[in-house]
Every structure is written in C-alpha cells, then in structure tokens.
Simulated scan of single mutants.
Amino acid sequence: MRRNKVIVVQNINITVSEENFDDYICITDIAKAKVGESRGADVVKNWMRNRATLEFLGTWEQIYNPAFKVVEFDHFKSEAGLHTFVLSVSEWIEKTEAIGLFVKRGKYGGTYAHKDIAFEFASAISPVFKLYLIKEFQRLKEAENDAEKIEWDAKRFLSKNNYLIQTDAVKNYLIPSGNYKENLEWLAYAEEADVLNVALFGFTAKAWRDENPELAKKNNVRDFASINELTVLSNLETHNAQMIREGRNKTERFQILQEIAEYQLNVLKAAEQIKLIVEK
C-alpha cells in the first residue's frame, strides 16, 4: 500500500510515496526544477540513456535486489552512450526486474525512484536543489516521527548506518582541542569516516570519544550532530566517493571536503534565517 506525501522544494511540489515500508521520490517532479512543468519525463528519459546512470542503477540493484537480472543489465550497459540507444523506465523494470524505480499513472503520476536513486538524480539536475531536497525530506521524516511517536533513524536514510538524529548540535558537548584542520599528521593514518568527521566537525571520532568517555559508551559524535550537519555529511559522502573514483589523494580530498562543508552549512544557516524572518 502506497501513502503519498508532498514536500515543497524551492517552490516545486515533490511527491514522496511509501512502498514496502521504504520511501520513493517522484523524479519526474524533481526534473521540473530543470525544465519546468511540461518536460519532466523527457529529462528522466535522457538521464536513463547515460552510461554512468545505468552503472549506478545496476550497482544499486545488485546490492539490494537478489532477483535483479545482471545479464540484461550488461546488455543495456554495453549500448549506453550510443546515439541510437533509448531506454524507458518501463523497459528497464520489465527486462531486469529492477525494484529501484516504478512508474505510477493517474494522480501523483510519474517515475518514482528509491530515495538513494532520487538523490543521485537530483545531483544530475542541480547539486543545490539536491541539498534542499534532502533537507525537506528530513523535515518530512521528523514530522512523521513526531506524529507517530516512532524514532527516526537518520542514518538508515543517509547511509544505512545506525546514527540517530538529535536536535542538539555537537557544540553542546565537550569538543576536543587541537587544530586537526591545519595539523594534518593524523590524515595519513585516518579512515575515510574520520576524513569526513574532521572536514565537518573539526576533530576525529577518537578525539571526541576521549573527551566524552561516558557518552561514547553508547553513542558516537554523529549521534549529536544537528540536522544541517547530517544533511551536509550525506553530501560529503557522495563527493568523497566520487573523488576516490577519480583517484584523488587523501590530502586533496580533505581540503575540498572542508570547503564544501563550510559552504553548505552556510547555505543552510542562511536559509533558516530567511525562513525565520518570513515567518515573523
């Protein structure tokens, strides 16, 4: 049974549908951010022709869909990029038994994608739009949590790990001293999670645990991040993965991630301030 909700992202209505206890977002609606009301389906169709898109969709299906037909997927991937290659969402689903996309007719009609895929599609439309989409999606999940008294596991949405959203920011807890952003000796030995932690919070997970031994018994630093910080963290994970694929070294990636974190946090903070002024 599907339940539809609508979120508004930069004045565009985006439908979110619940399917098998998971969330699917209408990417036809997202496409309107690029081309307006009438040509959203064309944008989705062109996106499906892209080889990188098919590789992403195929990888997602192989991770989450045991019935996915890999042979058919390889056939489509071999043709992607050719001028003659055309692939509809319906054909993709029929031939590969994909579950990450579905097409709905009638009211709230359009192409729907699992939230992981929908955010990837939003990146192709506009990275800024994706940022606002994630933020509004999080607002929706918080509202559902308040209404139904169900804990919302934010990391299930952001990266399938068990990090719970908290409204208290990291700064309300003991913050480790030390200038990790300038003294980069730690970087050579750091795992990717700490590259993101320092880029966003300014310190490693171990440093936080050492300063907060009682809290660290049952929690980690990300459990006390704000919604804005978790939103940016999700984007940093995507950017970092792409840079790893590009072969960039850890120092270069860290510097770029710092810049992205600072910029996106400022964007979200400014948006909140504007909203407060408008509401007054």
Rank of each mutant, 00 (worst) to 15 (best):
K155H: 03
F121G: 07
I134T: 10
H114N: 15
R209W: 02
G58H: 02
E182A: 08
N50V: 08
F56I: 12
L200G: 07
G247I: 11
K206N: 10
R245T: 14
D29S: 07
Y173A: 05
T238R: 01
L268I: 10
N65F: 03
K107R: 14
D153S: 12
K45A: 12
K149A: 12
K269R: 13
P66N: 12
L87S: 04
V43T: 11
A113R: 03
R248W: 07
G110N: 03
V89T: 15
Q62G: 11
T53P: 05
L268P: 10
S234C: 08
R156T: 15
T59A: 13
A271V: 09
A147P: 01
E262S: 12
K130T: 06
Q264M: 09
K155D: 13
T28P: 00
K218D: 15
S177V: 12
F157E: 14
L265S: 12
R209N: 11
K171N: 10
I227G: 08
L233G: 01
R253V: 08
L82Y: 07
H83G: 13
F137G: 07
F56V: 13
W152G: 06
K141V: 09
R209A: 12
R245K: 15
A216I: 02
R39E: 14
L215N: 00
R156V: 15
V43S: 00
A205V: 06
R3G: 01
E94C: 06
Q273I: 10
S226R: 02
L196Q: 10
G100K: 05
E136Y: 03
E272Q: 09
I99Y: 01
T53E: 05
N172L: 08
D22V: 04
A143M: 06
M1G: 13
T238Y: 00
D29P: 05
I150T: 15
A169Y: 01
V278H: 03
I14A: 07
N240I: 05
V86N: 07
I7T: 04
T28D: 03
I274D: 11
F85H: 05
Q10D: 09
Y24P: 04
L140E: 08
N11T: 10
N220D: 11
T231S: 07
A169T: 09
T238Q: 03
E55D: 15
I256V: 14
S226V: 09
Q258R: 13
V221H: 01
F21A: 13
N13E: 15
T167H: 11
N197E: 08
A271M: 05
S177C: 04
K149I: 08
T167A: 10
G202A: 06
R105K: 14
G36Q: 01
G178Q: 04
E91S: 08
L215V: 03
D168Y: 01
A113T: 07
D29Y: 00
H114E: 13
M1H: 07
A188T: 09
H75Q: 15
S90G: 10
A271Y: 02
D153I: 13
E259L: 14
E191C: 04
F76R: 03
A270T: 11
E272T: 07
A80Q: 10
H75M: 11
Q258F: 01
